[in-house]
Design a protein around this nucleic acid. Sequence first.
RNA 1: GUGGGUGUAGCUCAGUCGGUUAGAGCACCAGGUUGUGGCCCUGGUGGCCGGGGGUUCGAAUCCCCUCACUCACCCCA
Length: 420
Amino acid sequence: MSGTPQYKTLKGMQDILPPDTFLWQSVEQTARRIFSAFGFQEIRVPVLEATSVFSRSIGEQTDIVEKEMYTFTDKGGRSVSLRPEGTAAVVRSYVEHNLHSLPSPQKFYYSGPMFRYERPQSGRFRQFYQIGVEAFADPHPRMDAEVISMLGRFLTSIGLEGVSFQINSIGCEQCRPAYKDALLGFFSDKKENLCPDCVRRFDQNPLRILDCKVSRCIEARSDAPRITDHLCQDCRTHFEKLQNLLTLLEVSFAVNPEMVRGLDYYTRTTFEVTSQGLGSQNAVAAGGRYNRLVKEFGGPDTPAIGFAVGMERMVGLLKQSASLTWPAPAVFIAALGEAAGNAALRIAGKLRDQDLWAEVGDAESSLKSQLRRADRLAARFVFILGDEELRSGTLKWKNLADASHGEVKMTEIKEFLAAI
RNA sequence: GUGGGUGUAGCUCAGUCGGUUAGAGCACCAGGUUGUGGCCCUGGUGGCCGGGGGUUCGAAUCCCCUCACUCACCCCA
């Protein structure tokens, strides 16, 4: 084998290998467990959709749609795209299958790969995995609080520490335009103080100036109008109720009026969970309310709220605190000679019938090398089987951890393993 | 798309004022006498030193180009 393999994963794509996969599994299992307790049910949607499913919902002018989608023309001449996020497809499915006719609210979760053609960096990949949830048809801040507290419970349950919740309200179609105008008015005579990116943002997406990291932009916006001071009465009430409910549910959070979300479809509540120790891409989960999207997809006027968790980022954080362990066989059967080797296979089969992980050594190689292998696998027990044992109907056993050893009758293996 | 950093064995890295067959540790495989692992000892597998071009008697080492990886910007989970 030489230095540069002939075939490699594409840029921004990665293989997820054991023992990492065990961590991924436990994250996924925990998500299913917690989300189920909140009444969320799994939905599976395709990774490939008509391009318009994404462009219309995420926003035609967003970077995601403009330059980050894997878009191509299929053999039928249709423009199709790999999903860059999960919500759009779930909403499409919700409308397509009239899921609003299910008892309200309808609550779903999904997980799987998303695709964005970006320059990879720490915590950012071209194929990345998200676990997300979407709750439909409940406009009340109670649902916002439920979803956010569920996310908190999930993160706690998975053992993630040192994360912080930030929430914000970005208003609705009533109050946001006025705020945008106020913001434009504020910055219009301060353009020369802004960084080049923010000068561009001034025209394209002025809200983005609020979360620019450049120090002179931070300075320039210190007296900028705050969205939370420009909310209409309904949005303001909604946001206040949400905060009260989160307090009631003992979710600790901070209001961050400068938090802006990138997707066009959000209304009112937005939230984000960040962690230090993730590098620059520090959001481990994010979401918000999107009250207009279902209608825009041709469905009934249905409010909704959801979030997505970045799996790689979450797993990355977990790996910092917990050490990964490989699972180990329950039993390694070392055999000496062909007859014993065959007997070992039959015994292993019986153990596997009981869902025990049994490994069988190579009966043609030395006992020493078989034991070495058993040790490397960290097998809890070794059974040794040779001609002597075949004659007497017994097995030698050995506990590799403490080197204790003894004999057990072949007919009593089950009892032996049950007793330990 | 823009900028910085790095490319030597499966992994972590030495080796760079250019000088013979490119090294270590770990990992892997096999031995250290008959059927007992870990520790130790011995041996082995494994590198066209990311790729291409140039300078030179001679390049892992110097120059140019290229590719890959990586971090940051942008954007976002």
